[in-house]
Structures are given as structure tokens and as C-alpha cells.
Write a protein that binds this DNA or RNA. Structure first.
Length: 484
RNA sequence: GGCGCGCUCGUCUAGUGGCUUAGGACGCUGCCCUCUCAAGGCAGAGAUCACGGGUUCGAAUCCCGUGCGCGCUACCA
């Protein structure tokens, strides 16, 4: 075990967006670092030039930042281990690859992709496991030097020994063992001079003094290659922890094909960062108690790597939605009012003449009834505009032959009210019902319909107070003429 | 195919040999509350703990085998 304060990293390849699975990996690394007083770094693994996406790194960093996950070292936050973009460290990888060649732990390979394809076909036909046949290890030093001098294209491959056991301990899975015969002579340095993941990852984890490698389970099968590399270099092996996968509803690895996978997708759909982070933290980890509502700082206190599960977890939108509603209810009205203002603009509703106080009051009336901010204008547009239509089912259920008359009488009463207070509206309604000798419900339901156009929502008196006396009366009269 | 990992309600999970008639949460159903819709409260349906063998007085929990699922098997990460 490495005896210093923990140093962990999130090492994504910049694909253009932050995958929610990546978010969870980043989060667990972050939580582990914060919990143990360690350091969390961000390293960008951009070693595949074919997959270069402009702006991807910036997007990734922005997404992490939005989630509240700050790194101690990384792009833009140089520590003493930079640069943190692998594409800027090419000479380092080459140096180490060559070192391995010198010690016989790696070798130059000049095989063409055609020969490799042919080899693969043969192995396939014979039912053998695919893998490089060490063909180029038979080259003499002179032959190799000659080819290199001729400028022949080459790669550098790992020289995997035969008949050995490669084992390591995983914090989540315990001891894992692989036979070296099942490990391919992995390419370490590609034809274009870039390293593959395996080389770059091991070299950087060592150089950056990483103590705990916390990454997705998809890396478990290639870990023995990494172990071999650490051993060949004579480096200390970090403690591994392979996280269970995030799954689609059909239990395959969470993919774009079956729904949203990018943090920005969820952000765009109106999910709160607090809810997303909370939800993703619970996919594969629990403190062991019944607590399910967490803020990031609480997760730091509660987190324990030993309590991470072994099996994959389906990304269940229904539970995410519930958590979003929970977090929505805990946020301040002021904060939500600002979000509501943005949302109104997005939905093309002019809210410039509404005060922050008014929007906050609308939030307070609606917050227990929605899971997302965008549902406020969607479900309660009547706080901003008079209803243009009346919900058919509600009209059928609540509007009777006498409704127009009752409502008209109530409108008369409302006009006489002095203060715009919900108690006043309520008192007026009870008085009106008493005088007419009817139940309050006979006015309330048509009233709600008149004022909101729909059958559900906050208490009617709250609605009346919010939209005000004049507007309320106007809506009542208007409804009467339309539905009469 | 090979290698590896996994397997408790539909989903996320608690459970580390007796406290378990397997607990909680989401979702679902019903009731209560109520001017409506929510929220909240209460209740309910929902898991032969993948299956089969062991070990043990006793197993969801330990061991072995089988099955199923998933991941990896690239000059992608």
C-alpha cells in the first residue's frame, strides 16, 4: 500500500459530453478524496486522434463544474504533475515505451493491418482466441534497426510472458486473478506516435502519484495488462476499485441508443444538479441506513468505498424524477423564482412585468405540485395569462346550468372586497353561498374553472389573491359569457 | 468461442450464520385529509433471496457445481 494521502483521478476521454456513468465515477473519486483528505485530479485521456471532438474538454469541465465537482489539479489548475492533457505528454510515453523495449519487456512490431486481419481470420477459423502471435519478436536487433532506419511504420507492443498468473486486489471485488496466456500483446505505442490507453494510463497514474484507481468495471479485464506494466517498470501498484456499470432498462451497459446519457441532456430537461448528483450517488452505493436524500457535502461525510455494490444498477428515471421533486421542495423560493423567470422566457411567456416576489409566491403555491420548474408554466399558465379555453372534462363535471348565475353573484361580492387577501375571498364566498342557500362547492368549482381554466391546482383563494381582485372578476365575467 | 464479473420485490437497495413471517425507497393500488390537483398520513399487492447440491443444530448469508445476465476480447477509451 502506498503510504501517503490518497490521490485519485477522474480520467475521461473527451467524447463531447459527460456521460452520467462518468459523472458517477467522477463523483465517487471526488467523494473518496474529500472524505480522506486526499487530492482529486482531472486528467484528459485524449490519445485517440480519430475521435477528436472540438470543444469536448471544455464541455466536460463545464459539466463537472455544474454538478459541483471541483478538481484540485487538472487542466487550468496546474499542480506539479502537469500537463493534464495526455496529448501534451507524448514524449513522456514514448520515452517509457522505449525503456520497455530496451529491457525486453516490449518490442517493435512492423506487421501491417492486412497481416493482422489475416491472422485474426485464421485464428477465428481454428476456433483459437484472437491475439497477436509475437511474429515480430523473431526479428533480430539488426533487422529491427534496419527497418527503423528505412522509416518503416511500426508500433510498440507489450511482451506478455507466457504461463504466468497475474493477480491483484480490488477494493470492491476482492482478489482477482488472470492467466497471462489470455492477455494479448497489447499495442503500447501506436503508429502515429500516440500511446494507447494502457500505456498512457499506467505511466500517468504513476507519475501523478495516484494511490487509488477508481474506475468503471469495463476496465477490469484490462487491469492485468496494467499490472504487468507496473511490474515491468518496477513501480508500486495502486489500489484498484472497479465500479459496477450503469445499465439500460434491459440491463445492457447504459447507452445513448436507449435514452439520455449526457449530463447536459438532464440539465436541459430541467433536472436539478442536486437531484442528479444525489441519484447517481445512490446507484451502487448506500450508507446502509434508510437515508436517500443527500446534498453533496453530506455525501462526502457518508461515503465509503467499501460499501459500493458489486452488481450493475439500472438507471431508473422514475426515482430520479422523485428525487428532483424532493430537491425542488427544499430549495428557496427566491432561487426557484429566478429559475422560473428563465423558464417563462424559454416558453415564450412575457413575465417582464412580474416582480420576483410574485414569481416566488407562484413557486410557493406550486412547488408541492410539480417535479420540475418547467411544469409550473405548463400546468399553471393562468398565473401569467387569463385562460383562453376551459378544460372540457372539468366543464362537463363542474359547470351546471346554475353556475353562471352563482358565479355572477360571487363576482358582485368580490367587487366590494376592500383588501386583496385570501381570507376576504373566502369569507365572501361563504356569505354568498349562505345567502343563496347552496353549498360552497357549487361556487368553488365553477370559480376555479373560470379563473384557471382547469380543474386542479393550488387553493382557489390563493389563486385569487395572487392574480388580484380586478383580474379575478374579469375572468369570472368572461367565463360566464363564454360558457353561458 | 475465450477470459472476467455479477445474480435479494418491476427498479434502487438493507442484510456479512440465529434479531427475518426477508426491512426500506421509487413506482403501482386503496383509504384518510380536502374546494380541486398535489403533498402528507395509513394500508395493501409485489422477492419460493437464480437453481441444485453440500457444511451446520440452524444459510439470503460459508463451500462446490449449474444456469442466466453483463462486460472485455482494437494501432477506442
Amino acid at each position: 500500500m502506498i503510504n501517503e494521502t490518497p490521490r485519485v483521478r477522474f480520467a475521461p476521454s473527451p467524447t463531447g459530453y459527460l456521460h452520467v456513468g462518468g459523472l458517477r465515477t467522477a463523483l465517487y473519486n471526488y467523494l473518496y478524496a474529500k472524505k480522506t483528505g486526499g487530492t482529486f485530479l482531472l486528467r484528459i485521456e485524449d490519445t485517440d486522434r480519430k475521435r477528436f471532438v472540438p470543444g469536448a474538454v471544455e464541455n466536460l469541465i463545464a459539466a463537472l463544474k455544474w454538478c459541483g465537482i471541483d478538481y484540485d489539479e487538472g487542466p487550468g489548475k496546474e499542480g506539479d504533475c502537469g500537463p493534464y492533457l495526455q496529448s501534451e505528454r507524448l514524449d513522456i510515453y514514448k520515452k517509457y515505451a522505449l525503456e520497455l523495449v530496451d529491457s525486453g519487456k516490449a518490442y517493435y512490431c512492423f506487421c501491417t493491418s492486412e497481416r493482422l486481419a489475416e491472422l485474426r481470420k485464421e485464428q477465428d477459423a481454428k476456433g483459437l482466441q484472437p491475439g497477436y502471435d509475437k511474429h515480430c519478436t523473431s526479428l533480430s536487433k539488426e533487422e529491427t534497426a534496419g527497418k527503423l532506419a528505412d522509416g518503416a511504420p511500426y508500433v510498440i507492443r507489450l511482451n506478455v510472458p507466457k504461463g504466468e498468473k497475474v493477480s491483484f486486489n480490488d477494493s470492491i471485488r476482492g482478489d482477482v486473478e488472470f492467466g497471462s496466456d489470455t492477455i494479448d500483446d497489447q499495442v503500447l505505442l501506436k503508429g502515429d506516435g500516440y500511446p494507447t490507453y494502457h500505456l498512457a494510463n499506467v505511466v500517468d497514474d504513476h507519475l501523478m502519484r495516484i494511490t487509488n484507481v477508481i474506475r468503471g468495471e469495463e476496465w477490469l479485464p484490462s487491469t492485468p495488462k496494467h499490472i504487468l506494466l507496473y511490474n515491468f517498470f518496477g513501480w508500486e501498484i495502486p489500489q484498484f476499485a472497479h465500479l459496477p456499470l450503469l445499465l439500460n432498462p434491459d440491463r445492457s451497459k447504459l447507452s445513448k441508443r436507449q435514452g439520455d446519457v449526457a449530463v447536459e441532456d438532464y440539465r436541459g430537461k430541467g433536472y436539478l444538479k442536486e437531484a442528479l448528483v444525489n441519484f447517481v450517488a445512490l446507484l451502487g452505493w448506500t450508507a446502509g441506513d434508510d437515508k436517500e436524500f443527500y446534498y453533496l457535502n453530506e455525501l462526502v461525510d457518508a461515503f465509503a468505498l467499501e460499501r459500493v455494490n458489486k452488481s450493475g444498477a439500472v438507471f431508473d428515471l422514475q426515482k430520479l424524477n422523485w428525487l428532483n421533486a424532493e430537491h425542488l421542495r427544499k430549495k428557496s423560493s427566491i432561487e426557484l423564482a429566478a429559475m422560473l423567470r428563465d423558464e417563462l422566457a424559454k416558453q415564450g411567456i412575457d413575465a417582464s412585468h412580474y416582480s420576483d416576489e410574485y414569481l416566488a409566491a407562484v413557486i410557493d403555491a406550486m412547488r408541492e405540485r410539480v417535479s420540475f420548474i418547467h411544469e409550473v408554466p405548463e400546468n399553471a399558465k393562468y398565473f401569467f395569462e387569463a385562460p383562453k379555453t376551459y378544460d372540457e372534462a372539468t366543464v362537463k363535471k363542474r359547470w351546471t346550468a346554475e353556475s353562471a348565475d352563482f358565479l355572477s353573484k360571487y363576482a358582485d361580492e368580490v367587487e366590494k372586497i376592500g383588501a386583496n387577501e385570501k381570507e376576504q375571498y373566502e369569507k365572501a364566498l361563504h356569505d354568498c353561498a349562505d345567502r343563496l342557500g347552496i353549498k360552497v362547492a357549487q361556487i368553488i368549482h365553477p370559480l376555479r374553472l373560470a379563473v384557471s381554466g382547469v380543474g386542479g391546482g393550488p387553493g382557489v383563494y390563493d389563486i385569487l389573491q395572487l392574480i388580484g381582485k380586478e383580474e379575478s372578476v374579469k375572468r369570472m365575467r368572461n367565463c360566464i359569457t363564454i360558457l353561458k
